[in-house]
């Protein structure tokens, strides 16, 4: 059975691109439009991998990432951050949150800065799933 990959991105264009890449590589795509929908989907579907945008209305990627990594049942699900935000800015916000909320959240497994070619995306997914 093909592996389930959840794409959380508010931009329909990004979703259709990633979904197509996943289909072309025999994965089973799932989609969510924002962090809140994304979290519901993860709990329900238990995907094998999450591809997560950072800046989204209603529940940002930053918050969802934290939710996953601090949840005992979900923290093992690998996450690829897929975003237009530079890694440096993302880590800075994570660090600020660490200090604010206490505890430490591990850095994302893979961080991809858009734009990303289909090949780069596939390589990143394979690295986590194969």
């Amino acid at each position: 059975m093909s592996k389930k990959v959840l794409v959380v991105d508010d931009d329909p264009d990004v979703r259709s691109f990633v979904v197509t890449v996943l289909e072309e590589n025999q994965y089973m795509p799932l989609t969510a439009q924002d962090g809140i929908e994304g979290f519901e989907m993860i709990e329900k579907e238990r995907p094998d991998l999450v591809i997560l945008d950072v800046l989204m209305p209603r529940g940002s990627g930053i918050r969802l990432y934290r939710q996953l990594k601090t949840n005992e049942n979900l923290k093992k699900i690998p996450v690829i951050m897929f975003t237009g935000i530079a890694l440096r800015s993302f880590l800075k916000s994570q660090k600020a949150l660490d200090e604010f909320k206490g505890g430490e959240v591990p850095e994302p497994d893979i961080y991809l800065e858009k734009p990303v070619t289909p090949e780069e995306l596939v390589a990143a997914i394979k690295k986590k799933l194969d």
């Binding site: 990004v14 691109f17 197509t20 858009k114 734009p115």
Partner: peptide
């Protein structure tokens, strides 16, 4: 630049989907 990059990403993604 940021905004244009996003458009570019959209166009690249779109053309990939069209290619497929």
């Amino acid at each position: 630049a940021h905004y244009v990059k996003n458009i570019l990403i959209g166009l690249q993604g779109g053309s990939y989907v069209v290619d497929v």
